[in-house]
């Protein structure tokens, strides 16, 4: 367990190749870190899902080159978890698709069963599991997504 409070977080960063194979160990590491810091198993599981979905989007929509990387920053406060993902910039179409997915749409479930895909469902899940989600597109389409989850009993 690490020293932290509501003002001073335990912070860690992970940078990994933009490849889906890296997401599973990263998401599990985040969940285990939260569990060690006495967040509930449900909180850790939900956070694992959030990390998974946001990293997945960064890899699919924010990687233009084969050597692209994804960087995550986690801030674990005693009363909340803040998670940020930076990718290295996607194509304009990908950014627009991501922006569109940030907007709620009831049609997505039907789309998912039709397309053998789950486009947009991931962000929908993140939105429902978190208190705050923000997306910023910077220079060269580099995208930052920031999510905040509060401890249930905070």
């Amino acid at each position: 367990m690490f020293s932290m409070d509501t003002q001073t977080p335990y912070v860690f960063k992970v940078k990994f190749p933009s490849d889906l194979d890296y997401v599973s160990p990263v998401r599990k590491f985040v969940a285990e870190t939260l569990a060690v810091n006495k967040f509930s198993p449900k909180f850790a599981y939900r956070s694992e899902v959030i990390v998974d979905e946001i990293c997945h989007n960064a890899i699919i929509h924010g990687s233009r080159t084969v050597d692209a990387t994804v960087e995550i920053e986690c801030k674990v406060f005693s009363d909340r978890f803040e998670f940020q993902v930076n990718d290295q910039g996607g194509k304009r179409d990908d950014i627009e698709r991501l922006k569109h997915a940030m907007k709620k749409s009831d049609a997505r479930l039907a789309d998912a069963s039709q397309e053998k895909e789950s486009r947009g469902l991931g962000l929908e899940i993140v939105r429902l599991l978190s208190e705050e989600i923000k997306m910023e597109v910077g220079e060269d389409n580099m995208t930052t997504v920031r999510v905040v989850r509060k401890r249930e009993d905070a």
């Binding site: 599981y45 997945h56 069963s113 039709q114 789950s118 469902l121």
Partner: peptide, 16 residues
């Protein structure tokens, strides 16, 4: 133990 949106999408596809 775990399912994400991609897994959920495939379950919906199986159902259909």
């Amino acid at each position: 133990r775990y399912v994400n949106s991609t897994g959920l999408g495939i379950l919906l596809h199986f159902s259909k």
